[in-house]
Nucleic acid binder design. Structure first.
Lengths: 121, 121
DNA sequence: CAATCATATGAATATATGTTCATATGTTAT
DNA sequence: ATAACATATGAACATATATTCATATGATTG
């Protein structure tokens, strides 16, 4: 016959430290928050996007320049710029046919720097 | 006939601002660095791993507790813990059959906090 | 308005990745 | 040793994602 302890098992395994789990459960972040956070970091999790962000942290640039700089197709760059735009990490201004992209705010530089600090340690 | 400017094109499109591109090119990070950085951020780019990291920032926990807390299989948690271990974001200690996981250092909390600040703004 | 240039985008493809399932490993207790 | 438990892991599968290709859009110039 099942005991009370068995009833709180969730994954087919008995919870070993029920008090800890209950305590932590109360403090966990909302699913929505976690998902937003994951999406935010995911944007930084690609070499092409990091290169673009780093380049734009030095100077604003147009799509064609970025493509040349990174030796990639205009289309590939454009697709990634869309991702960065949707994540509100970059902004742009139009000047005739040319569109100049730049970082949305200095906040991005800080995230970048913090990541670099970890990688270089 | 082609001009000199056409020769420096890389992606089939002419570089518009050669001076800017050359300047930025000198300052770009090494490929290796960018790849490490992308891998670092990629680890944060998954809701399950974020939940685990956040839970461990509150208290050390064993695999079974984490599985119960997140209503996920022991296997799924274990696989993700492996990713977090390889990224050196968590450490563990053994006590009999139970293995307790915890954050590797406070640095992780800072990255987490910075991401949260961006998401909540 | 026709041609050209800079950029954007949809579809297709190849690769990466998260979870499940089954099973293995390592530890403890009987 | 054997059983039971906590965790780890390899293979399979389903989904996500980065790039390419072809083409569309929007702006300028002749």
């Amino acid at each position: 016959m099942k005991t009370d302890k068995d009833d709180i098992q969730t994954c087919g395994y008995t919870i070993i430290h029920e008090d800890v789990v209950n305590d932590v459960r109360e403090k966990m972040l909302a699913d929505e928050t976690i998902i937003s956070l994951a999406e935010f970091f995911k944007v930084f999790g690609d070499p092409t996007r990091l290169n673009i962000l780093y380049a734009l942290s030095i100077s604003e640039m147009c799509v064609c320049d970025l493509a040349a700089l990174l030796s990639m197709s205009q289309s590939a760059i454009s697709h990634q710029l869309k991702v960065l735009r949707q994540a509100r990490l970059i902004k742009y201004r139009r000047e005739g046919k040319v569109i100049y992209y730049s970082l949305d705010d200095d906040h991005i530089r800080q995230v970048f720097a913090q990541g670099l600090a970890h990688v270089n340690e």
